[in-house]
């Protein structure tokens, strides 16, 4: 067992975890933050993306003990305190960037990480960045559109599909 202390969405938390407890299981089972999804068992789908010290990581491919002392942000930390959607979340809604919504938390966390480093990405840069995020519904097109819109760029040139 390991004693860990970390910040999650701006709140400090401490817990005792097993060595093998994955960060995603600690977030979901330990803290009840079930917005971070588990879409596969093979580290390939990207539904569980969270930010650890500002870097996007797969919460299913990191142990909870490795997050000791870290600042973690999950999808629950993306909206404002009053529940107002973040710019990225609002853009996903406005541009129909989701259908079933299962992959969306990971998509939003990936988009936030991309826009932090690259505020005005090209369509190709967005597609490259989302290589590790799988969506089975949308065909990605409206996700790309939503992220372009969230970056303040004109999306009218992007053909509807």
């Amino acid at each position: 067992m390991a004693q860990i202390s970390l910040m999650v969405n701006g709140k400090s938390t401490s817990a005792e975890v097993e060595g093998r407890t994955l960060l995603v299981d600690f977030l979901r089972g330990g803290l009840g933050l079930t917005g971070t999804h588990v879409g596969c068992d093979t580290s390939q789908c990207g539904a569980c993306l969270v930010h650890v010290d500002g870097a996007v990581v797969k919460a299913c491919s990191m142990f909870a003990f490795e997050a000791d002392g870290a600042d973690v942000r999950t999808i629950e930390g993306m909206a404002g305190a009053d529940g107002a959607l973040s710019t990225i979340q609002q853009a996903f809604r406005d541009h129909h960037g989701l259908q079933c919504g299962f992959c969306t938390p990971g998509m939003v966390m990936a988009a936030a990480a991309l826009l932090k480093d690259t505020p005005k990405p090209t369509e190709a840069e967005i597609r490259h960045y989302l290589e590790g995020n799988i969506c089975r519904c949308t065909g990605y097109h409206n996700i790309i559109k939503a992220i372009l819109a969230a970056s303040g760029q004109d999306v009218s040139a992007l053909a509807a599909e």
């Binding site: 990936a110 960045y129 590790g132």
Partner: peptide, 9 residues
């Protein structure tokens, strides 16, 4: 290498 999340770890 891999994807953005893999490159961060």
């Amino acid at each position: 290498i891999g994807d953005a999340a893999v490159r961060n770890r």
